[in-house]
Amino acid sequence: MSDKQEKPNKNSRREFLQNIGMAGLGSILGGSAIWAGINYDNKKTKNDRIRVLTAQNELVEVERSQVKTIAKSTQETFTYLQQRGRDGIAGKRWVMVIDLSKCRNARKCMEACQSAHHLRPEQHHINVLKMQETENTPAFYMPKPCQHCDNPPCTAVCPVDATFKRQDGIVLIDNERCIGCRFCIAACPYSARVFNWAEPLYSELDKDTVYDVEKNVPQRKGTISKCLFSADRVREGKLPYCVSACPNGVYYFGDENEDAVTNGTTKETVRFKKLLADNGGYTLMPELGTHPRVYYLPPKGKVYPFQDKDREEAAEHLG
């Protein structure tokens, strides 16, 4: 990248920018980097404009030729992504609501998540569990992402601040710092964390990708990986991968401060507290004092019955 940078030729700028664009929008940085177009030319086609996320977290569209990049090296991009990832988004408190009455174990959430985060098939940031809590209570399907607890036991035990809580409530993992002690796995009561026991599946493909802590890609051998509430998507104003992949309207995602959550399937936005109040929302294992940011609506009036073939597996966990 840097050898191209040295060319002073103006004509090469567009080509250079396209290269940058391929490396990800994230490499074009900062509000200060954007020159508000003075001569904004409306005749130009869509391809001559580029959408850029500013440091103030606004998505703006500017002319390609007006963009001046300040991220010169991989190292600088990395530092920027780290800083952005550790800061989080001010004024937000993300919450997820999972409506168990709608889940039919379609597992589109798991697929979308694994492909977005370059995971192996046995690695689950989100796992749809077949649950049965007591003998006479019904079995149901329960998607289980990281609960993004407000009192996270995992970040408390991390010796190197590799996993941490952001101001917007997301618990992230920095696999460029993780030493692989796996204390967080031991501490997490929700079994929400996975480890890269072997060389990650796409490590060859991701060789030149700059590590983005908000996406935890590329994955690294010998480090932890976990659900990130799709921090990279949320920053762009999009719903998390799993939420928007669900075909059954199971997931709601939103901001507790706005008291609103948006359904990933119907894109309907409803009031968060009212949704919980009307449907008897609850959190998993509240007695542990972890204060999850993931809420569940009970599997009442299921539209899709629990399948007989899954009964045995669900009952395995009974006492």
């Binding site: 010796p159 190197v160 030493i179 002690c181």
Partner: peptide
């Protein structure tokens, strides 16, 4: 037991004294 033994120094660079490992 560490997945990334070469990062042992992180414990001293980024150590969090809230962690029992430290």
């Amino acid at each position: 037991d560490m997945g990334r033994p070469e990062r042992l120094l992180n414990v001293f660079i980024h150590g969090r004294i809230q962690s029992p490992i430290v």
